[in-house]
Simulated assay, not measured.
Amino acid sequence: MTAPDPNAAFPLAGYNRLCFLKNVVHHPQISVGDYTYYDDFETVENFLRQVRYLFDFTGDCLRIGKFCMIASGVEFIMNGANHLTGAVSAYPFAVFGHDWQGAMAGKAYPTKGDTVIGNDVWLGYRAAIMPGITIGDGAIVGAYSVVTRDVPPYSVVGGNPAQLLRPRFEAATVQRLLALRWWDWPTAKITRYAGLLTGDVHTFLNEAESSVD
């Protein structure tokens, strides 16, 4: 049994608008897991342009898990977009130097930490993810959504701001899926279970939990 090569930049022969993202994006503040793909209507080079305000001096990172599905136009807004909100003015005086360069002495721009996308997450067309958000494993974010707060595992969210639309499965089933962490299995085992992974959740769980391999 064979599986796609996770180290292939373009896994679909003759089609270069879908990539296994980890092989295309090389940035010290971005990490991507195996088999996560990005599909773009124009060019996969657009992905880095969609990670907005990612600066080395902010120190935040974008961490994306395995087997994620990222549609064209998805944006990640990073902490470099933040301004002071509790001050008299939110204007970034110090950025422009001259006699304004000391305006931030003893102060720091707000940060919400790393942006973390779990495993098996589907980010729909032109969704926007705000700084410091964590999206749980198995979650689905609808097209054009603006995600301003953390998304629970195996939930479906949508809208602006994104709201919980429904859980994908009942709570006990979600806990069983999170315990299995199928995305961390060896590729050969994932390949054997691929048909079940695209079928009924209870059939998959019962088979996987009773397996000895």
Rank of each mutant, 00 (worst) to 15 (best):
D200C: 11
A13S: 12
S31V: 02
P131K: 01
R166P: 09
A71W: 00
N7H: 13
A9N: 09
L177A: 03
P28C: 07
A179Q: 13
D200E: 10
E75C: 14
K107H: 15
R192N: 08
G124H: 05
P11F: 02
F47I: 01
V151R: 01
A9I: 08
N206Q: 12
P4G: 07
T2G: 12
P131W: 03
Y35R: 01
A139C: 07
H202D: 13
A8N: 10
Y154L: 08
Y91A: 14
A128N: 07
L18N: 03
R181Y: 05
L123D: 01
R168I: 00
E207W: 13
F57E: 14
D150C: 09
V201A: 09
C19P: 04
Q175L: 10
S89H: 09
A87C: 13
M104V: 15
F204I: 08
A90W: 10
V156H: 08
I129V: 11
V201I: 14
T111Y: 06
L62G: 00
P4A: 08
A105S: 12
A9W: 06
E45S: 15
N46D: 06
R168A: 00
N82H: 10
V88C: 10
A90T: 14
G33V: 00
Y109Q: 08
K22Q: 07
D60Q: 08
S155F: 05
Q101R: 14
T2P: 13
F67Q: 03
V25E: 02
F10A: 01
V25D: 04
Y53V: 06
W122G: 10
V174E: 01
F76M: 07
V201N: 08
A9T: 09
I70T: 01
A128E: 05
G113H: 00
G106A: 04
G73E: 00
T198I: 12
L12F: 12
V201K: 10
A108W: 11
Q50W: 06
G33Y: 04
I129F: 04
N23L: 06
S210D: 09
N79P: 12
L123M: 07
R126K: 12
K22L: 04
S89Y: 06
V51K: 02
P6S: 06
A208N: 05
T115Y: 00
A87V: 10
V32R: 02
F67I: 05
M69K: 14
D39F: 11
M78I: 03
A90C: 15
R176A: 02
D114V: 00
R126P: 06
C19E: 00
P152M: 03
D120E: 07
Q175E: 12
P186D: 06
Y154H: 11
D34S: 15
I30Q: 01
F93E: 05
T173A: 05
K107R: 14
E207Y: 13
W182T: 03
I129C: 05
L165E: 08
Y91C: 15
R168M: 02
R126Y: 04
R176G: 04
T85E: 14
A94Q: 11
Q101A: 13
V51A: 05
L177W: 02
V32T: 00
F20D: 01
D34V: 06
G59C: 07
A127C: 12
L21M: 06
G102N: 10
D99L: 11
Y53K: 10
V25S: 08
L177H: 03
Q175N: 12
T203E: 13
G195P: 11
A172C: 11
E42K: 15
F41T: 14
V156I: 15
